[in-house]
Design a protein around this nucleic acid. Sequence first.
RNA 1: GGCCCCAUCGUCUAGUGGCCUAGGACACCAGAUUCUCAUUCUGGGAACCAGGAUUCGAAUUCCUGUGGGGUCACCA
Length: 404
Amino acid sequence: MNVNVRFAPSPTGTLHVGGIRTALFNYFFSESNKGTFILRNEDTDQARKVEGSLEVTEQSLKWLGVSWDTLVTQSERLEHYKKYAMHLVSDGKAKEEEGAIRFFVPKTDKTSWTDAIGNKEIIFENKDIEDFIILKKDGFPTYHLANVVDDHLMEITHVIRGEDWIPSTPKHILLYQAFEWNVPIFAHVPNVLGIDGKKLSKRRGAKSVLDFKGEGYLAEALLNYLMLLGWSPKDDREILSKEEIIKDFSLEKINSAPAIFDSKKLDWLNGEYIRSLGDKELGNRLLEFDSNISNIPNFEKYLPLAKTRMKTLADFRLLVEDKNVQLLDKQRDLNINLEKNYLNLKQWTAPFILPATFSARDESGATTQDIYTVLTGKPSGLPFSEKLEIEGREKTLERLRKQK
RNA sequence: GGCCCCAUCGUCUAGUGGCCUAGGACACCAGAUUCUCAUUCUGGGAACCAGGAUUCGAAUUCCUGUGGGGUCACCA
């Protein structure tokens, strides 16, 4: 199958996860059919344009490992839109109106198409569709015109976009028919909803893709999670690499119902990906995420201990760093006993630290959680014997003395 | 409100007339392992929106209702 697809964001803000999922569907559809993938910057709205939006989109895509074949910008293609708009005018299908050009919808008949999502026919009565502007008086095209002209010129075979475009699809089809062009296949993918059940939007606090990066999510985990939202492989697999998705991807397997974004499952997946990383690789990812982590002495030694306890890369620092708290009486006793036992310890290694710590605990009538509180300021954390071995005797004793 | 889309456990989903007393995953609960917390392992509760119709048989097909969502710009 010959496949050409495009992802066409407008540069009016940062790309959130709903938008990126549409990009992902385009990308994987193109990849699995060895097609081409165009990134099209739809900057035809002068007023709403936000500087830097395209760059953020590119960064987001790159971070996720999504590549595109060409980048085109609509504001550089104004003459095309104008030319085709004038065609319509001279054919009597559109008319100049106060400096703008309006397309006339034939009010009889119906317009329909078979949508690839759910393989269903969607029908609109033409009388319900209003005449619409195709070229604005500032000389820029509206989405409808620019989209149809570009999709035709770029030989787009499959238009994969959000389902909020369904109501304007008949307008686009009417335009294709007016130009006597072939109509591409439409695949309207359901929206991603927030926990409130409403469409994700920046206004309602939808996070951008780069926000997830900043919070310590792994690109492959986010990508995996997003693909599971509304799409599923043939079997029960949940953890899928890019290659596996490319192998399995098809439009037919996209669900026709909207999906709610559930961060709990993302957290789980991210943890799974973190645990699957080798220590060295995890260390590199941590440094990329936060270069200050290199200031933690022997930070790489904590990796095997922290790995099973992390949901995001940001958790590492939280796990390793200690806190200061006010001790209870029995914890104060424990503190004293620990200092005594540690001073006399023959060897500062985990197998020695462990029994010495427990005997101090028993002498002071404390609990194991008290040990963690005294040693780290937190009721739980990395296994103390190994953690203390890494930190060294001096640092440990210093803490015990200070909080006496 | 008009038009359009959608409807399986709390969430993501499998399921395209009999394999379904509905499967998997997350989350949740319980137990095991464990130096805490996690990880890991085992087990558990949890769903076909409602009502009609078609059929020997319906989660799967068709109607109606209800609910949710989207869209109604010289914005995309």
